[in-house]
Amino acid sequence: MKFNKDKKDELFIERLELMNSYITQKYQLETLIKSGCLHLAKTRYVDRRPNYISTLQLPTSDSDKETKALYNVKLVEDDTVKDSEKENVNNSNKKETKKSSENKHEGSHFELIKQEDVKENPLRWFGVLVSQSLRSAQTDFQRCISLSVQIANVQLKLKKLEDKLKEER
């Protein structure tokens, strides 16, 4: 499929915008991670136990208890893109629109979902009465998870654009 110059310009501008938002979100993530780590350090300091917040508290494959993730991601197909793809199929011949297996995720995005059936809060790994700073750390890292999913979506869009431009060559 050949694009005209304007279409090509549009794609390049879109890609620059996506790259900009990708970098901005990565710096936001850095701020959040630093803030979360600071809260973890504060928790260790308040509790006066250096090993209180460490890998020792994390679940291991040896433990009998099953650990389920509180947050999952789901890949959702984009309806608007599906429609435009259908139009493409109608307008151009089949050879041009034949998609490789790599492109099957085009027009889809991740959605963060909270599992309702998982009742265990990871805070309980660190005790029953945990400090406020550990709760703040949890909030920061939950925001990090949410932001990571957004960044993954930008990454998917960038990949899709790259594939479009490669097709054009």
Binding site: I33, G36, C37, L40, I53, S54, T55, Q57, L58, P59, T60, S61, S63, E66, T67, K68, A69, L70, Y71, N121, P122, L123, W125, L134, A137, Q138, D140, F141, Q142, C144, I145
Partner: peptide, 13 residues
């Protein structure tokens, strides 16, 4: 990083 993200709730075995 691992402790933080697992505290956030993504850890699973």
């Amino acid at each position: 990083t691992c402790v933080g993200f697992l505290l956030g709730g993504i850890g699973e075995i």
